[in-house]
């Protein structure tokens, strides 16, 4: 019986892995097709769809915008989120547990709700600029990811180390920088990674905040799909997959994926 049960579990594992990976893997060969339609298996080999990325109106601009927004929002979240997390873990904040739950709650909120609420809020305070409202909205999107991993690392961190650094001649901020930051680096990196991805491919929130000249990549891609569904999208996707793999390799070199996964 035990063998049979394990066999079923094994089969399920293989099927799920295939189901998770196949669609992603299929995109890569399709991006090199000579055909003008999205079809598998691809016909021939060409780089024409990669060349076309440059010519599609607004695609590179959207990519650049999304990258900048994601990077800035992640950086802001790391700074603010770490300070908030330190206050929650060390500051004897009344109701710290409830506040912690609140700080990670946008993770559980439907993006649509958040998008409408943020649009409303931006209107109320008279914020008409799409770029700034996108950035602020994406700080809201990224903050819970950063909070979650940084809080996780902080709860394992022994703050006596900060005291030790202080008695050895570091002021409090310097002690945080030289002792706390290196020790919670895995939490930073994995939090930043999740946050960046969450911002980069966010659709439901951004949808409400973009304007004609300021469109993020997911929105631009979907627009393009509606107008001309050709393998350019596969080429863009393959490029993003390559980028992700590159970032993961860098993270592995920097702190080790094992350490990141454990947080």
């Amino acid at each position: 019986m035990e063998r049979l049960g394990l066999g079923i579990a094994w089969t399920a594992l293989v099927l799920v892995i295939l189901f998770l990976l196949l669609p992603i893997v299929v995109v890569i060969p399709v991006s090199f097709t000579e055909a003008t339609v999205f079809r598998f298996p691809p016909e021939g080999f060409s780089l024409q769809w990669y060349a076309k990325i440059r010519n599609v109106d607004g695609l590179l601009g959207a990519l650049w915008l999304s990258a900048r927004i994601a990077a800035l929002a992640t950086a802001l979240s790391l700074l603010l989120g770490t300070l908030c997390a330190i206050a929650l873990v060390r500051g004897a904040v009344p109701g710290a547990a409830a506040i912690t739950t609140f700080m990670v709650s946008p993770l559980m909120l439907p993006g649509l709700v958040l998008g409408i609420a943020l649009l409303q809020a931006a209107r109320e305070v008279g914020l008409r600029d799409a770029w700034w409202s996108l950035l602020l909205a994406h700080v809201v999107i990224t903050m819970p990811f950063v909070m979650r991993t940084v809080l996780g690392s902080l709860s394992l961190f022994d703050f006596a180390m900060v005291d030790a650094a202080r008695t050895l001649g570091c002021s409090y901020p310097v002690a945080l920088w030289r002792v706390l930051v290196p020790n919670i680096l895995p939490g930073f990196v994995s939090g930043a990674l999740f946050a960046f991805i969450a911002s980069f491919d966010n659709y439901p929130v951004s949808m409400f905040l973009v304007d004609v000249r300021t469109k993020t990549l997911p929105i631009q891609l979907l627009n393009y799909l509606e107008i001309s569904p050709d393998p350019t999208l596969a080429a863009v996707s393959t490029g993003l997959i390559g980028l992700t793999v590159l970032v993961l390799i860098l993270c592995d070199r920097l702190v080790g994926l094992r350490r990141m996964a454990s947080i």
Binding site: D158, A160, M161, D163, A165, R166, T167, G169, C170, V179
Partner: peptide, 17 residues
């Protein structure tokens, strides 16, 4: 402040880095 006192401390669980 602590960092200008030049007082050495050995902590309970040593707090090594």
């Amino acid at each position: 402040p602590a960092h200008r006192r030049n007082v050495g401390v050995v902590f309970q669980n040593y707090a090594l880095f």
